[in-house]
Amino acid sequence: MNSVAFLLIAIITLAGALAAAALPRLIHAALSLVVAFVGVAASFFLLGAEFVGLVQVFVYVGAVAVLIVFTILLTRREVTGERGINWGGAIVALAVFGGLLWTILKTKSLALPAPQIEPLTVKRIGEALMTNYVWPLQCVGLVLTAALIGALVLVMEEKREEK
């Protein structure tokens, strides 16, 4: 693993996430979220999980980001009346960050280098999905179908009443 690449990816990811959390305009935040997701996918590649990185790019950058942008466009009429930052939320987030950081830095056994591993091929993932994980796979398929039908019903209901 390359430490320069790691540093670059970390900076891009955190900058994108901070912009997504702090920018006042919603559409800018959604586009910064794409940057953060690309950074997370790049760190998946760096960690040797190429398939998950690709899935991350397809699902998040391809689908979820487009979904968010569409929702912003559909609900745009409102002028966002954000009254500054909510300090309670900032304090809670900082406290969580501080606590977790203290725990991570205190745990000495976490400072281990990466072991040598055989590369995780798509063939191995596919075999695992089709043998040991076939029931979770079917359940996730069911959940996805139910969620998408539910989303459609939620959005369509109002239209039916209007007619």
């Binding site: 990811t13 955190l14 996430a17 901070l18 997504a20 959390a21 919603l26 935040a29 959604a30 979220l33 953060a36 997370v40 968010i68 929702t71 912003i72 609900t75 966002t80 954000e82 009254r83 930052i85 909510n86 300090w87 309670g88 939320g89 900032a90 809670v92 987030a93 900082l94 969580v96 960050f97 977790l100 950081l101 991570i104």
Partner: peptide
């Protein structure tokens, strides 16, 4: 951890529903 805290910050301190989802 930093990514999680930034997400928590966005979910807790913004008032727009889409920001909370982000």
């Amino acid at each position: 951890t930093a990514l999680f805290s930034i997400g928590l910050l966005a979910a807790l301190s913004r008032r727009h529903a889409i920001f909370i989802l982000i």
